[in-house]
Design a protein around this nucleic acid. Structure first.
Lengths: 208, 208
DNA sequence: TCTGCCATGTAAGCCGTTACATGATTTT
DNA sequence: AAAATCATGTAACGGCTTACATGGCAGA
């Protein structure tokens, strides 16, 4: 296990908590759940699994060729599941509501695990993230004010666009925060069909 | 110098092309121009400068303590400027209109240097980037269609938001592309002052 | 048959960060 | 006098990717 707040490890524990899986499948799930783009490579995943297993947080059982032959007669694969220690570790990771939870590299993963996170912590993380982003906004705006003159139109446009994306992210968080506050103790069932169309208004989605 | 399409190197060459600078200043400029956030560290910058110097693309002159004493009597610092070879390298980097220009890690830098890039290449890069993003959109949408049922509301919302951000990026590119096409060989009259010299061909920004 | 997906891993290397080391100069 | 900022660097390490190595199974 890597030292402080191993993001990939947490993500793996989170997925395995939902259901046991083998590496190949886990990778697909990881890629489709978070990131969505940027594919995690096997060169990262398998060593991470090994590390988690060595740390006793997960245990792998080899399902070698035994199955009757009906369906799923693939080949020897290693299905991992959480150990008791792994469950504990996951719980403490889910309870973390500090910077480690809302920084760039980890927020996505933590958010994807919100279904297993208690309401208090969810709110704390969303607010932390929001503060983080508005701080950034401030810094960038000041920097732009200082340097606007010296920059060509393209560079300026790049910055403007970057700023806009972050602003949008903040508004997104605002919606989520509102929602969390409103739904204190209400799991938000009955989400409409997210369908497609630009914004829809699906699950615990914010309005804008 | 690192092998293929060294992004940081190109960024440095681009900035030094505008005006000679020393490392400390360069870092600030890099951070304010692109990224805006995510600060590049000295641990990256100085070795990169060393590598560029070793490759003969830039030359550093030590301005040690000599200055009259009037203003700017800082301390011995090394002001770098492009060599002839460096200028050539930068030109060929600016002419690159393939994937290396529009992939995630490099697009920002290339875009920030659009003022020094010819119109043909600008258009090619913007279109390449657009294609890249729509491909991603496709992949993700398909993946979502397949897995929508199995995912909890939060995960779904995360994906929806990610998708929306990319869609917005595509629309942003559409605006830029339109703009580029509109300004084909037409001075466009009232566009902003080119501000910098070099390439002629004003730098038309899109509307928002 | 051959292509492509399933499945697991290892080795090398890239690109960057943090932390350390050092010291001058400017501002409070 | 202390604190911030200017200025340059090095060493260690972190996290991820690419490319390599291996092989079984399914369908065109």
């Amino acid at each position: 296990m890597r030292a402080r707040s191993d993001v990939l490890g947490t993500a793996i524990l989170g997925l395995l908590h939902e259901s046991p899986m083998h590496g190949y499948e886990l990778r697909k799930r990881l890629n489709e759940v978070l990131g969505s783009f940027r594919a995690l490579s096997y060169g990262s995943l398998y060593p991470a699994l090994r590390a988690l297993a060595d740390a006793g947080l997960i245990a792998g059982a080899e399902t070698d060729s035994a199955p009757p032959h009906a369906l799923s007669g693939k080949r020897a694969r290693i299905v991992y599941e959480l150990t008791a220690a792994g469950k504990e570790r996951l719980q403490s990771a889910l309870a973390e509501a500090g910077p480690a939870a809302w920084e760039d590299g980890s927020f996505d993963v933590r958010f994807a695990l919100f279904a297993h996170t208690d309401a208090e912590t969810r709110l704390r993380i969303l607010e932390g993230r929001r503060t983080r982003l508005t701080e950034r906004l401030d810094t960038v705006r000041k920097s732009m004010a200082r340097t606007r003159e010296r920059l060509d139109d393209y560079t300026l446009e790049l910055q403007r666009h970057g700023l806009e994306q972050v602003e949008r992210e903040v508004r997104w968080l605002d919606g989520l925060i509102d929602n969390e506050r409103g739904n204190r103790r209400a799991p938000t069932t009955a989400s409409g069909l997210p369908a497609d169309a630009d914004d829809a208004e699906g699950a615990p989605a914010p309005r804008h």
